[in-house]
Amino acid sequence: MVMWIRAYDEAQGLWQYFESDEAGWVLRQVDLRGDDGTPLTAASLEEVLRFQERADIATMSRYEQRYGLVAEGRLTGWEETSLAGAISAEEFERVWLDARRTLGATAPPSDTDR
């Protein structure tokens, strides 16, 4: 079962939105700057893996610069955090689409996608 979570990282001043699989592995992630909501990350594990497997280093670097990367490891312990909670799929999608639009809408094409 897919889960959608929103958490505030006080140390970094970020609202983080996660879509994770049933084991807690991050599938997609959005980071918004806490003070003004500016998107900083809107990365997809599927895209990152595809670009790592099929693209050259320059293309992967452009993706990372534009969209960032998803968190490594599993999401655990978020239920005990006061500034974290489950959100709806619809809320996650709205935040995801807004962040992707702001950061550049689509991932840069790789040479093998042409």
Rank of each mutant, 00 (worst) to 15 (best):
V2T: 15
M3T: 09
M3A: 08
I5C: 03
I5T: 09
A7R: 13
A7K: 09
Y8E: 04
Y8L: 03
D9G: 03
D9I: 04
D9H: 05
A11E: 11
Q12L: 12
Q12F: 06
G13R: 02
G13F: 07
L14H: 05
L14K: 01
Q16W: 02
E19T: 07
E19M: 03
E19H: 00
D21N: 03
E22K: 03
A23C: 08
W25F: 08
V26M: 02
V26Q: 00
V26C: 04
L27F: 03
L27W: 12
R28I: 07
R28W: 04
Q29H: 02
V30E: 02
V30T: 04
L32W: 00
D36A: 04
T38S: 03
L40D: 08
T41H: 07
S44W: 09
L45E: 12
E46W: 09
L49P: 10
R50G: 13
R50L: 04
E53H: 08
R54L: 12
D56W: 01
D56Q: 10
A58N: 13
T59F: 06
S61V: 11
S61W: 15
S61Y: 15
R62E: 15
R62V: 14
Y63M: 10
R66G: 07
G68Q: 02
G68H: 01
L69N: 04
L69A: 10
E72D: 15
E72V: 14
G73H: 05
G73K: 05
G77V: 09
W78Q: 14
E79I: 05
E80Q: 11
T81Q: 07
T81P: 06
S82W: 00
L83M: 09
A86F: 07
I87H: 01
S88G: 12
S88R: 00
S88Q: 08
S88P: 15
E90I: 15
E90H: 05
E90F: 04
E91P: 06
F92Y: 10
E93C: 08
R94Q: 14
V95E: 01
W96R: 02
W96D: 11
L97K: 02
L97E: 15
D98H: 00
D98K: 00
R100E: 14
R100I: 04
R101C: 07
R101Q: 14
R101L: 09
T102I: 00
L103E: 14
L103Q: 11
G104L: 03
A107Y: 10
S110D: 14
D111G: 10
T112R: 09
D113M: 11
R114G: 09
R114H: 03
